[in-house]
């Protein structure tokens, strides 16, 4: 293995050490915001992979510890893929449709951080 792989594994150990310190600091499950991205054939063919990557990158960049990003199968409205659902505890689910990676930073900043739904990207605006 070349030097870049040794460096990479050192980075992974650094991530581990950082995260171990944070165990217990994470907010409890009932405060966790969930982002769920549709990753069935319809979503993948429509471009869900870069959208999911953009969510992971933004959540990581902003170090949002109370947000989880997960994947699901077909949400049922294939023509509006790529789709992501956002579940904020105590609030109604918000469904974002026809997503592109460049729309994701705004959803993360406005909705996940500042709790303002990006109405123009929602299924209500698309229909």
């Amino acid at each position: 293995m070349g030097d870049e792989f040794v460096k990479s594994l050192e980075e992974l150990k650094a991530i581990r050490d950082r995260m171990q310190k944070q165990v217990g600091l994470r907010e409890s499950d009932e405060n966790t915001i969930r982002v769920v991205v549709g990753m069935a054939t319809c979503g993948i063919a429509a471009g869900a992979r870069p959208v999911l990557e953009a969510f992971l990158e933004e959540v990581n960049k902003r170090n949002l510890k109370d947000v989880t990003v997960t994947q699901t199968g077909c949400i049922g409205v294939c023509r509006l893929e790529p789709i992501a659902e956002v579940y904020v505890p105590g609030e109604e689910k918000v469904t974002y449709v026809k997503l592109k990676p460049e729309m994701v930073p705004r959803i993360v900043a406005d909705h996940l951080v500042n709790r303002q739904v990006v109405t123009e990207y929602t299924i209500g605006a698309a229909e």
């Binding site: 594994l9 992974l12 150990k13 991530i15 581990r16 995260m19 171990q20 165990v23 969510f55 992971l56 990158e57 959540v59 990581n60 947000v67 989880t68 990003v69 997960t70």
Partner: peptide, 14 residues
């Protein structure tokens, strides 16, 4: 390397 308790689903790990 990561040990127990750190999920491969974590955005930072991904």
């Amino acid at each position: 390397v990561l040990g127990e308790g750190i999920s491969l689903a974590e955005p930072e790990v991904a």
